[in-house]
């Protein structure tokens, strides 16, 4: 699923686009160590952590699309980091659970 398709499903907007970013599974989490330990490659990460460190985690575990909940703003250093690392960022007014429901056709991410 592409970032644009994900944005549409979660009623959000693509804040940072990334060429060819495709996601095949979903992980929901706000604790970065939890994401590090459990999220797999090519997943959508659904979180409220709107800062640069989330991008570092995405790059390390291979999350391709990041969905930021509750319309939290994307700070400029985060947007730059995402663009540099090729991580697409979608911002949505929905909560984590509502996003999970909206993306239910994708399987849970494991590794």
């Amino acid at each position: 699923m592409t970032a644009a398709e994900i944005a549409e499903k979660v009623g959000g907007t693509v804040a940072v686009a990334a060429d060819g970013a495709q996601a095949t599974s979903v992980y929901v989490g706000d604790l970065l160590s939890d994401v590090m330990g459990h999220a797999g490659e090519d997943c959508v990460l659904v979180t409220i952590q709107n800062h640069l460190n989330t991008i570092a985690v995405c790059t390390l575990v291979g999350c391709t699309v990041l969905v930021i909940c509750h319309s939290r703003p994307i700070p400029p250093d985060m947007a730059e980091g995402a663009a540099r690392e090729g991580v697409a960022v979608v911002v949505t007014p929905l909560s984590q659970y509502a996003v999970a429901l909206a993306l239910k056709e994708l399987p849970p991410s494991t590794h």
Partner: peptide, 15 residues
């Protein structure tokens, strides 16, 4: 509040 401090870092590394 930034998502660190879940207390899972050392156990993640060990695993």
């Amino acid at each position: 509040s930034l998502g660190f401090g879940a207390g899972m870092g050392l156990s993640n590394s060990k695993r």
